[in-house]
Nucleic acid binder design. Sequence first.
DNA 1: GTCTATAATAGGATAGAC
DNA 2: GTCTATCCTATTATAGAC
Lengths: 217, 217
Amino acid sequence: MTLASLDNEPSSRDRILDVAESLFARRGYAGVGMKEVADGASLGKSSVFHHFKSKAELYSAACVRILGAFEDRLLRSLAEGGTPSVRLERCIGDLIDVLVAHPTHARLLLRSLFEDDDLPQDGPEGAAVYGSIQNIMGPMAKLLREGMSAGEFRLASVSHVLLLLIGPIVFPFASGDFGEQLLGKDVFDPAQVRRIKGELLDLVRVGLSAPNNAREE
Amino acid sequence: MTLASLDNEPSSRDRILDVAESLFARRGYAGVGMKEVADGASLGKSSVFHHFKSKAELYSAACVRILGAFEDRLLRSLAEGGTPSVRLERCIGDLIDVLVAHPTHARLLLRSLFEDDDLPQDGPEGAAVYGSIQNIMGPMAKLLREGMSAGEFRLASVSHVLLLLIGPIVFPFASGDFGEQLLGKDVFDPAQVRRIKGELLDLVRVGLSAPNNAREE
DNA sequence: GTCTATAATAGGATAGAC
DNA sequence: GTCTATCCTATTATAGAC
């Protein structure tokens, strides 16, 4: 906590993380130079190394920050209660809201999930990434299990369904130019977000519902 | 066509592409050095530059090759006929088969779809990537439209549904360590592939079906 | 905390012999 | 087609002044 944090101006550390997140999201770990990060934060390269002792640590810190944002939102969302289907739909909607509020998140999140080699899995920062992912996936799995026990969701392998749900939630908002060309409009345009969210929730609602449940109640 | 191509031994060009695909898939465009590619293909760096005049061209060529594989399989799959639902499910199953037969494909495919900056969008190779993507997405969109007209699929925005379908098809097989930890087993294990495919096809079958269709026929 | 200067290395790419 | 040798730039990271 510094003096600046009491004010509105973000600290140098936060400015570095902002720039790093945006650059890493676009070009991946190896595609970004520390000089570029420093320039973006209006600092010298050495100042960046003062805050993060290596590039790997900076990358992990950027990942940890966005994973933390997801974790917070997810836990708050789950705490609001409701039936499993209600909570699942609210969770997915809320997670998408986080992705949309920070357009750079989806790409870096996707990278942190499938670029094993980039992350220095050892060290405290690497462990934080791993822990945060666990804290997100755990409650989601629990929610699916509850819904199946309650007879709201059809019986299915929780882990396989979970693995299947990540793609449609994250990829659209990481798809960049491809998504824009497919839709003919910016993926982050509010109207497009609403339609993507709507289609996904429709798909999940009926796709996961138990066969004996009425289709429309 | 060289003499070697009449034999069983792959040409240098193919060996380079094999190595490049595997490396680019794992570490992304910037994360791979031409030296590394050359070593993997048991060649000197200059020999690689003889076959591909730049790193960007090599990357595009690797992407074009896998996109071509998808295109071929998809068009053959669609030509087999059947109702829209039958064809959609067969397509998704066949595309997954391609991903599973070449475990390195999913990651590079995902990258080629969301890493705009990496691809040199200009030039002949960049255009081939773009064209191949169009040749894959076009017929898929047509299939969805047919299914909606026929009353088999519920009415929905074709492009948004398409954007939503890519994630669950590709991500599981690009997820690497994450997927393995989630499932507790290798994602490419035949039994796991069967379950992932099964869950996805279930989700799509009921999730896209028209409301007035009987759930089980 | 931030800077300049510098080290040490690895990167993409080319020239020219064979 | 493949090689060795080379060029030039960019990279991560450190040292030390302010």
